[in-house]
């Protein structure tokens, strides 16, 4: 009986990991891998720059070309930076601009853990804290900056303050 149950769970586990691992279901952004950054850029209408490697992590900056219709001749802006660890897994994203990015792309599967209703009294800030996701967004209706990260995935010695669109 116990063995049967184990087999059922084993099969279920294999099925789940297969279905989660299928390329069609893979969402990039957080938990994605470096090779998916290009797909993120495409979904967001952005162009990825070269990867830049720092101490134990690397980053790619995605920019909105001035020629893009989204940019409305330069009146709208959006820049995104994705951070991946030594194993190539994305553990943090930062963004800023007058165009809010599609967070279902940047947060990947973790987007589903964002509640659909925000009962905060404050309109120009969003602080989200779940056990395994942090999101901070600040700004006006015209310009905002945000960052999201997975606390358990930060490389050793990495401070969330380093999650920013432009290196200081």
């Amino acid at each position: 009986m116990k063995t049967n149950r184990r087999i059922v769970f084993l099969l279920l586990g294999i099925f789940l990991s297969l279905s989660l691992g299928l390329p069609a279901n893979v969402r990039a952004g957080l938990d994605g891998n470096q090779t998916q950054i290009r797909e993120d850029a495409q979904k967001l209408g952005l162009v990825p720059g070269p990867a830049s490697t720092q101490n134990g992590y690397s980053t790619v900056t995605l920019s909105l070309p001035a020629s893009s219709p989204q940019s409305m001749g330069g009146r709208k802006t959006l820049t995104v930076r994705e951070f991946s660890d030594a194993g190539g897994t994305i553990f943090a994203v930062a963004w800023e601009g007058s165009l809010p990015p599609d967070l279902s792309v940047l947060l990947g599967d973790r987007f589903s853990s964002v509640p659909k209703k925000n009962s905060s009294p404050y309109r120009h800030q969003l602080f989200l804290r779940t056990p395994d996701l942090r999101v901070r967004v600040i700004g006006t209706a015209r310009f905002r900056a945000g960052k999201a990260w997975i606390p358990s995935r930060l490389p050793p010695g990495f401070n969330p303050d380093q999650i920013r669109v432009q290196a200081p």
């Binding site: 599609d102 967070l103 925000n118 009962s119």
Partner: peptide, 24 residues
């Protein structure tokens, strides 16, 4: 409601304010 417009959540005014006078 979809995230493609950058919206994440619904943010009702109640019970914190009765309105917003946006002066920008």
């Amino acid at each position: 409601t979809t995230s493609s417009t950058g919206n994440i959540s619904s943010a009702p005014f109640e019970p914190y304010i009765n309105g917003i006078l946006g002066l920008l």
